[in-house]
Design a protein around this nucleic acid. Sequence first.
DNA 1: CGCCTTGTTGTACGAACGTTCAACAAGGCG
DNA 2: CGCCTTGTTGAACGTTCGTACAACAAGGCG
Lengths: 226, 226
Amino acid sequence: MTEAGPSPEKRKRGAKKSPPRFSREQADVRRSMLIEAATRCLSVGGIGAFTIDRICKEAGVSRGLINHHFESLDGLLVEVYKSSLYASVNNQIAEAKRRRAETSDWSPQAALAALVHSNFSPDYFSRDNLLIWLSLWGEIAVNPRLKAAHRELYDAYRAELAEDIAAVAVPRGRDVDAPTLARNFIALVDGLWLEWCLDESVVTPQAAEAAGFEMLEGQVGPLRDG
Amino acid sequence: MTEAGPSPEKRKRGAKKSPPRFSREQADVRRSMLIEAATRCLSVGGIGAFTIDRICKEAGVSRGLINHHFESLDGLLVEVYKSSLYASVNNQIAEAKRRRAETSDWSPQAALAALVHSNFSPDYFSRDNLLIWLSLWGEIAVNPRLKAAHRELYDAYRAELAEDIAAVAVPRGRDVDAPTLARNFIALVDGLWLEWCLDESVVTPQAAEAAGFEMLEGQVGPLRDG
DNA sequence: CGCCTTGTTGTACGAACGTTCAACAAGGCG
DNA sequence: CGCCTTGTTGAACGTTCGTACAACAAGGCG
């Protein structure tokens, strides 16, 4: 306000240097920033908010940057999908595997219970997250590239869950169709998640988690007892 | 080809009459045509295909007609929602009620089995239908008008299902939380439907129906025995 | 047969879309 | 300090979007 000089600061001799108007970032850093901004747009406004203008504004960069770092807006959507699914689902798998490997006295039912519980944590079982997934599901049904990525990642998650189920059922001598039970469990979780987000009066996250545990416990026995 | 006359047919005297270029329809007829065309667009291309141009082309009318019969494109989407949900869900309820009223020797478990079975009929449990619903769900989460309509209709369906469950469980002396079971059943159906449409190798409609019956039969006893 | 109502058409318009690209500048290097 | 690489900008373009509206015509009526 009171200053009349051409630039707020001039370091080391330069008399005409103006402050940087932007900062250069490494390619993968900028890509991550754009993916995160795009994800935020999806969670707020659904697929209708997935536009160049809004994403760039959300990321605080200019309009040209998306097409510089991604082949197209569609390519960015694929990356958003991989990022979202990979982060939420594959991290669950990795954590489950890690626990089983590291902790020797970690019981199979505790591992399964942890995996089940993680499905209902606020990070995953949230309104924001569902809007992202509704958008992605709608695109998966139409976009072959997304469809292929979806199958691969979901298969991995289903297999991990089935493995954890079998690890509980077999020692208990229970005859369980683990892959089918895993598939039904995932369907139940997704369905409850959907119902809750469209009308929060139908079910609470706690009740949803209880329903998920009950489905599994009906076949493999108790999982949650102290 | 061989004819050189100005018009293919001229009835009763007129010499300069050309054939009608369009036909006038009653307002509600035209509205239905547009709603159906819009629904077809949704089922093919998702929400991205829900545009004035595509819907009018699909309906075989000119661009101006949607804004003449509906307040806006958004208003048309609400009508599509009501039409889809009303047709699929409320018809199930109506049919169930009708069966119960008309057929005196219609057992409660047969009524429930019929209602369950209808969820997996190709009319409802189809790829086309899911794309419509993914689009609508994505909009429900964002559009207050759609959200209100959704709650009302889904509540009615859940209540009907719970009633049918209780009608089976109570005479059998089983202590069942019918509303909760109904809610979980709907979630399972929607989840399996979603999984199947995104990757048909995960589950078949027959297996999905079996899973649905098993969830209910685990609490109220056999429903399908011949 | 001609008028009149109104359903229908098709153009026009501004806004927003995705993409392209020439110009710019930040930061590393000699 | 000046060059060079390259991440970044922002204008420009053609397309498509939703809406508005004047002109048109189909079908009913006297």
